[in-house]
Design a protein around this nucleic acid. Structure first.
Length: 513
RNA sequence: GGGCCGUUAGCUCAGUGGUAGAGCACCGGCCUUUUAAGCCGGGUGUCGCUGGUUCGAGCCCAGCACGGCUCACCA
């Protein structure tokens, strides 16, 4: 067969409306496809390879936002700026519209007498939602709004589907989460939260980098899912024919690195916990963990105050910020409250009740019948969760919880049943968890075995035995302070969002269909 | 997993057992500094799905799906 006889492969119609991903094609989608066809017929490339621009919309605002009307009229600055059309106001032979780069909206003015009749009519083959690049000079309207006077414009990309309503934005939370791009287009305050989150993470990295910490990445797929008391996700490696777990925490690997001489390490990345989903929990979430040799949990408290104070000052200004109905102050020092004192103050346990171990267990089991049988320490933890947590609104270091629920922490100095550990609570939410790391390999092994004993009694939240980790400790871990901070929750606080899904771009939802 | 609530046009939402509605968007007109532009005309729909009750169901009942809140769970 000669090349000439080869039939051309079928070419897609570049202006065709995409098959609807779900449901039927609506009248509005058909109208949009028709307009694109006309543009293509007029010679427009529906999928241009590159768009030249001088400014993003945000650049225009930043560079010219302060220039006066007279100044702009004299200078006539030229810009070529792309953006998505968000609204159109046509008045006969002149039209105003707004384009956005996802951060800033810029008004554009197009007049038939400036661009010519043909181009002016071509503009009406664009729809709200389409991407356009406009070139022209900047001026201010009667009302003072910075505006591009169009001299020419270029098609950038088609929006085949109508955008949500311009005034109310996109309200349906399910669509907001499933199709986050629509949320980002329509709800600028939602987009702003994710920019804030990015700034939070950048600050954290800067903070630790400047203090001599090494950023590392440790396994997310682990043979023993340790470092926290949580149910893991299971997966399977085919070539090795072995089950692996998605990590519930990076902790044990980070401490192995300290054994290896990396005396200051941190990691910011995802962990996975196969638990319920609610306003404070997403199955995959981002944790900052950091470890510092030659330190203890008191040093971690100092560091935490410094870190959060600086973060709030840097990103929000000042040392307090609104969260829901509260104003959270990160002024040093944070309240320090012993676990036992917290239970006495808010949990209705006086000293005598505290010492009545059977009574405590009974109370805990009444509050959490699913968790029976409870140990003393577990029961205290339950009572804390139910009664105390919600009272800890201002940043509070909750110090020395039961050793029993802290299998990776040293015992508190001078105590046999309390851990050298704190949890930081803000607005009733656990934000951080830190301890003086347990460095004794013999005791670590014992603690693991105790946990295994509880596991055997049906407790699937106990810590699994990790003998490989014990072996690492046998090579010597210097005194080390370590801490984990929930980055999503930190973003919730600074962004004043009550739901973790507002700070996770694509939160886990049940798959559709 | 339990309880409560929601699901109606592309979006935001009304809807009282008896012809399916509004605003925005869209379509056709008018309009050269508007900005939730305005004015005139047009309703474009699998009322989440499946059954049931009824002469008749968006509405009442049951089941299911998805979502929200909440409780449970949860470092």
């Amino acid at each position: 067969m000669s090349p000439n006889e080869k039939s051309n492969p079928p070419q897609p119609d570049p202006a065709a409306s995409p098959e609807p991903a779900e449901g039927r094609t609506t009248d509005q989608e058909l109208a949009r496809a028709e307009k694109l066809k006309k543009l293509v017929a007029a010679g427009v490339d529906p999928f241009p390879h590159k768009i030249e621009r001088t400014h993003a919309a945000a650049d225009v605002a930043a560079e010219f936002g302060a220039r006066s009307k007279e100044d702009l009229e004299a200078a006539k600055p030229r810009v070529r700026v792309p953006g998505r059309i968000l609204s159109v106001r046509q008045m006969g032979r002149a039209t105003f519209f707004h384009i956005s780069d996802g951060r800033v909206k810029i008004q554009v003015y197009i007049r038939e007498d400036a661009v010519g009749r043909e181009a002016y009519e071509r503009f009406f083959l664009f729809d709200i939602g389409d991407w356009i690049a406009v070139e022209g000079t900047l001026f201010r309207t009667r009302t003072g709004e910075l505006t591009v006077m169009v001299e020419s414009f270029q098609f950038v990309a088609k929006c085949h589907r109508p955008l949500p309503e311009k005034w109310h934005g996109l309200q349906d939370v399910e669509i907001r989460y499933r199709r986050r791009y629509l949320d980002l287009i329509m709800n600028p305050e939602a987009a702003a939260v994710f920019r804030l989150r990015s700034a939070v993470v950048a600050y954290l990295r800067r903070y630790f980098d400047e203090r001599g910490y090494i950023e590392v990445e440790t396994p997310m797929m682990q043979a023993v899912p340790g470092g926290a008391l949580a149910r893991p996700f299971v997966t399977h490696h085919n070539a090795l024919d072995t089950d692996l777990y998605l990590r519930v925490a990076p902790e044990l690997y980070l401490k192995r690195l300290v054994v290896g001489g990396m005396e200051r390490v941190y990691e910011i990345n995802r962990s996975f916990r196969n638990e319920g989903i609610d306003a404070e929990h997403n199955p995959e979430f981002t944790m900052l963990e950091f470890y510092q040799a030659y330190s203890d949990y008191n040093d971690m408290m100092d560091l935490t105050e410094d870190l959060l104070g600086g973060l709030v000052r840097d990103l929000l200004g000042g040392d307090a910020f609104p969260y829901g109905d509260d104003v959270i102050s990160v002024k040093r020092p944070f309240q320090r409250l012993k676990f036992r004192d917290a239970l006495e103050r808010y949990g209705g346990l006086d000293a005598r009740a505290f010492d009545d171990r059977a009574g405590v267990i009974r109370l805990g089991e009444e509050m959490a019948p699913d968790k029976k049988p409870l140990t003393y320490g577990r029961a205290l933890d339950v009572i804390f969760d139910k009664r105390v947590k919600r009272h800890l609104v201002q940043p509070t270091f909750l110090i020395n919880p039961p050793k029993e629920v802290s299998p990776l922490a040293k015992a508190a100095l001078g105590s046999t049943d309390e851990a050298a550990r704190f949890e930081l609570f803000v607005s009733g939410m656990e934000l951080a968890n830190a301890f003086s790391e347990l460095t004794d390999p013999v005791e670590q092994r014992l603690r693991f075995e105790q946990q295994a004993g509880e596991r055997a009694k049906g407790d699937d939240e106990s810590h699994p035995i990790d003998l490989d980790y014990v072996q690492a400790l046998e090579y010597g871990l210097p005194p080390t302070g370590g801490e984990g901070i929930g980055v999503d929750r930190l973003a919730m606080l600074l962004g004043n969002r009550r739901n973790i899904r507002e700070v996770i771009l694509f939160p886990l939802l049940r798959p559709r269909e």
